[in-house]
Design a binder for these strands. Structure first.
Lengths: 231, 231
DNA sequence: CGCGGCTTTGATGTTCATCAAGTAAAGTGG
DNA sequence: CCACTTTACTTGATGAACATCAAAGCCGCG
């Protein structure tokens, strides 16, 4: 699926209301002048760990993963985010360099706003500052709670958790097509590829989900929620 | 050690410069009027999960733990924080209720500022807003990275990590007295009490640390860092 | 057509939690 | 202040959960 041209207009952008709703015309102009749109194809790296931060990035369309690579070359995913989230999480006001990498999982459109312009508008518009505070708090809280939940569950509970997360939070549909590999899915919930597959197969055999390639459908929410609680 | 009276004055407070440095006299007055100081003794609960958030809390002196209690009554620590950190982490601008509890690990002094007053000052002073953004980003980033590191290591690496964290970040000294139990230490790094003790004993036998009750001294930073990397 | 990455299942071994049991320390009430 | 109770600490033994290793089928792509 290619990103169509018409969504490029700011008018339809969720961020227009979500974030930039309180701006004056002049402030909006300032942001807009410092803004560039970028499209990344599946697999392209958007930001790299240790690179300097010089702009604020938000996701217009697509899906991205946040990750760190360890000394053995193995990736560990921190989270995946959907449109409506920031691409460079939260340390843009507190640090000079990225602590993680971000990569497109499917064709993705990102808006980039130079940090200087953003800070100027924050300085002149306190309602906007509160909105940013709100969003940053919300996103970081979500990441922290997600990782917390995953870390205290064992494998069945983890798989149940990520399936429900994908269905409810990301796709808002019990049937969805995961654009990520089983390996990445495992990296996201801190388990091996093999055990991720094994657990998915088990859920399938038990009739809790159906699975054909990348398309997964949750058939029995109740049992899945039960596994989530007990596992 | 009792908290002495003289530190109660705002003049010596680290936050006076760190956070409130840009305020006008009037703004400072506003904050000060909405501010109350509270002292909690070891073990006292400062905020409880699910309670409504109505004020901003920061730690003047002492040490606190953030935690969640699961359905079996077992606690899981999210982090511990020292003076210079916020007590109610980051969701004060994005949510209405706490997602975790906070409890004093030793005698602790907390300053409480009504959220309304804080928001009023943020609205009138954008430099202050940027400072808050900076602090929130920094704290959340630290929590996320800490938990991330812990989750991808195994037990020796985890213990090494927390020892170095305590020595470098919290106490800034290779010798320190942990005010938390071994059980809590385990809860902080997601492992059982028994394995926490076993690993500490092993480090002691190997001459990497010395340990007498609650007092721990790191003797061999090099080997500990090596375990951190490989484990 | 064949190579490399993804997917899947089974067998094996390691890591870690759990259980058990005993000592030490720290509260608690008479 | 001492007996008593509870909580913290420690070590060893066992089993469960999970990672690793191995092997084979599959799919897309040059």
């Amino acid at each position: 699926m290619r990103i169509s041209y018409d969504i490029k207009s700011c008018v339809s952008c969720v961020y227009r209301q979500m974030l930039f709703g309180d701006l004056s015309d002049r402030e909006y102009e300032l942001i807009n002048e410092a803004r560039t749109e970028k499209i990344f194809r599946k697999g392209e790296v958007i930001v790299k760990e240790n690179e300097p931060i010089d702009s604020f990035l938000y996701l217009r369309q697509g899906l991205v993963k946040f990750y760190k690579t360890d000394e053995h070359g193995k990736d560990h995913l921190l989270s995946i985010t959907k449109p409506g989230d920031f691409v460079n999480l939260l340390n843009i006001f507190s640090d000079t360099n990225y602590h993680y990498s971000v990569c497109a999982l499917e064709e993705t459109m990102v808006c980039e706003v130079k940090l200087d312009a953003l800070k100027e508008v924050i300085a002149s518009n306190s309602k906007f500052a509160l909105r940013i505070l709100n969003r940053i708090g919300h996103i970081s809280d979500e990441v922290i709670l997600n990782r917390f939940e995953i870390s205290r569950k064992q494998i069945k509970g983890r798989v149940a958790y990520i399936l429900i997360y994908l269905a409810d939070q990301i796709y808002k549909n019990p049937e969805f097509r995961i654009p990520i590999t089983r390996r990445e899915l495992g990296e996201l919930i801190s388990m091996t590829t093999e055990n991720t597959i094994r657990t998915l197969s088990e859920f399938k055999n038990d009739g809790i989900i159906s699975m054909e390639g990348k398309v997964i459908t949750i058939l029995d929410y109740d049992r899945l929620h039960n596994i989530l609680k007990t596992g």
